[in-house]
Amino acid sequence: MSVRNRFGTAAAIALMTTASAVLLSACGPDNSDPGSAAPGATGTAAPGGTAPAGAAPGGGSGSPAPGGKEVNGTSAANHLAISTGTRTVAMNGTTVDFGTVVRDLAWSPDGKQVVFVDGSGNLVTAAPDGNGKSTLAKAPAGEAWSHPTWQHAAKDPSGNDVPGATERFNNIVFASAKGGLLQLESVPAKGGTPQVLTPSSSEGGTDNGIPQPPKTGNTWANAGGRQGSVAYANTPADEVYVYDDYIRPNTHDIGKGSQPALSPDGGHVVFVRSVNGHDHLFSRSTDYQQKTETDLTPAAATDYTEPAWSPDGRTLAARTPDGVSTVPADGSAAPTRVSTIKGLPSYRP
């Protein structure tokens, strides 16, 4: 079972039926189960746990350190950001106070905005400096939202799109949990009413014996590639899937694992799988006919979870019990710890 002792089916369902399910993601200030921090929880995003001097309650504070100096693993050069389930996010060699709890921070494809779940469990977008916050959608009572991702695809070059359209997809896909029911939902990036996203396959059906992907139990979505594909995990099956609806619905099973992340070009997916008592990072092609997997952390003596791709697709960042480590995406070297901040890594495009 992937993500050892933390994402088992029964445990995940139980988490999502409690009041604490509002915080399903693993971006809390410690290394407990995803969502262990309660709304308004405190924690430290950097040594000392304080925002830069002059931090305003509304957010937007922080400036890069002189000369691009790294602050606990982040810098303007490496694009790494770390959110901890508190008001502050480490990025650009500093900490930025968003003026509200930031959980599961993810970036827009152009790097000009972030999306996250706030302390009230709602979907919010903002500028990278914490200003310009906008609530896209408010979570209904008793429903927990987590792990948003920005699904974007340009207009179909074949001309099959609506005339005058410049975008085919510009949505926020996220996980929803209510009463033990896990499913993916989608809302326009400009805001609106969330709709259930039901992955399907045009190749599946009773006639050809190919099963349709599960409609429920889906979580941990991550979008990538030019066509807005979405990788996600199915908790009951402990499986990773890739969903593509650019031309026609097509969903295929990647294999056992959880917490998937798509490469910037959409050609590879990295995911988490438990091996010999530790959570390892695995990578494979998104082409379902190419089934070769690479264990990127074969000598793991700790747990590597919640992976994120660098913008150039050469590096992966992952959370560990001691902070954040990076590893070459081709597995050519062992992981290196780059930060002692315990939080969810992400990269600004």
Rank of each mutant, 00 (worst) to 15 (best):
G191H: 13
T235I: 13
T100R: 15
L184W: 12
K342S: 06
D303Y: 02
R248N: 02
S310L: 03
G180I: 09
G159T: 08
A106Q: 01
K133Y: 05
A189Q: 01
S332I: 09
K256S: 12
G257V: 00
N208T: 13
A76H: 00
G204T: 09
A308T: 00
P311Q: 04
A137K: 00
K138E: 14
S201A: 13
L281F: 08
G255T: 00
T149D: 04
S146D: 05
D110N: 14
G323T: 05
I210V: 14
S274I: 05
E203C: 14
Y232I: 06
G93Y: 03
G58W: 06
Q289V: 06
T206P: 06
S146A: 14
V124D: 03
D118Y: 02
I82L: 05
L24T: 05
I172V: 15
D245M: 10
Q290K: 15
G267K: 15
P211R: 10
G255R: 00
N5H: 14
R273P: 03
L136Y: 11
T198C: 08
S274M: 14
D287I: 02
V187E: 08
S229F: 04
W220D: 01
I172R: 11
Y243L: 07
Y304E: 00
S20V: 03
G54N: 10
R348M: 04
S263Q: 09
G8T: 14
